[in-house]
């Protein structure tokens, strides 16, 4: 036990799975204690939040709202992955690099000013929300993934050339298959970016619902217990998707975990 505590407290030490779980539990407990004993009276207590959650779920249709949001996020995610991977892989073609770099730079733009042109392009409603979310995620995804492709060591291309592979085969093996684990990893991060944008995007057209619209409506009426209850739902859904993506990565790319050095 003493060894575990020392390993957990000193830098660059490896810890076992049990210690890792214990550390997570300890931090969660610390966070809950901070919440329970918070000196701010305006913050809802855990009991109030869980009561609000129960009310939202059983009486005010939180379930269908979650479904609406999940559909929106997954739709945007599929488009983001398709567009961003195509752009990132295109960096192997010199002529495409300026275009990819331009897309990467667009990540500095906020979505607010883009609502008008996107409304003109999509006609508003659900397509507008998908387009905005896709734009927001794709700029970050392309930035990260294009860098992964550009960082592939020259030796990997040369190795395949010496084996006699065609350039198309090299593109498939080295660029597409060789970076699949990184692509999944970046997709995982982008799901989180998508969730962080959801309130803003769903706020554009609240009539269609979604947890983003719901949270904005509760916030407008200063129902803080409901707001925090929805935040907890968003957090849990995000974590669930994150875990799912992690499981998919382990299934499709078992080699990636073999290369990681655990500390």
């Amino acid at each position: 036990m003493r060894h575990r505590i020392v390993a957990a407290l000193l830098p660059n030490r490896a810890i076992d799975r049990t210690t890792a779980l214990l550390l997570v539990a300890a931090w969660v407990l610390a966070a809950l204690l901070c919440w329970v004993f918070s000196p701010f009276a305006t913050l809802p207590t855990p009991a109030e939040v869980f009561a609000a959650l129960s009310d939202l779920w059983w009486r005010r249709g939180l379930g269908p709202e979650v479904g609406t949001t999940l559909k929106l996020i997954l739709h945007a995610l599929v488009l983001t992955v398709a567009i961003s991977l195509a752009l990132s892989y295109a960096t192997v073609i010199a002529a495409c690099r300026p275009l990819v770099e331009a897309v990467c730079k667009l990540r500095f733009l906020g979505l607010t000013g883009l609502i008008f042109p996107f409304t003109l392009l999509t006609g508003g409603g659900y397509p507008l929300k998908v387009a905005l979310l896709t734009f927001g995620m794709a700029t970050f995804f392309t930035t990260a993934m294009a860098q992964v492709v550009m960082d592939i060591p020259q030796e990997r291309f040369d190795h395949m050339r010496v084996l006699g592979a065609s350039e198309a085969r090299i593109l498939w093996e080295v660029v597409v298959r060789g970076t699949l684990d990184r692509a999944l990893d970046i997709t995982r991060q982008n799901v989180a970016i998508g969730w962080s944008m959801i309130t803003m995007v769903e706020g554009i057209s609240r009539a269609e619902g979604g947890v983003g619209a719901l949270i904005l409506n509760q916030n407008k009426h200063f129902r803080l217990a409901e707001v925090y209850a929805i935040l907890i739902v968003i957090l849990l859904l995000g974590l669930l998707m994150d875990y799912g993506m992690g499981a998919l990565e382990r299934l499709l790319c078992p080699y990636a975990h073999l290369e990681r050095v655990r500390r």
Binding site: P153, H159, V174, G178, L180
Partner: peptide
């Protein structure tokens, strides 16, 4: 294709 090359760090397809 008549020349093989074993690189110094033995790159292999990691996946």
């Amino acid at each position: 294709g008549s020349v093989g090359f074993v690189f110094q760090h033995y790159p292999l397809l990691r996946h």
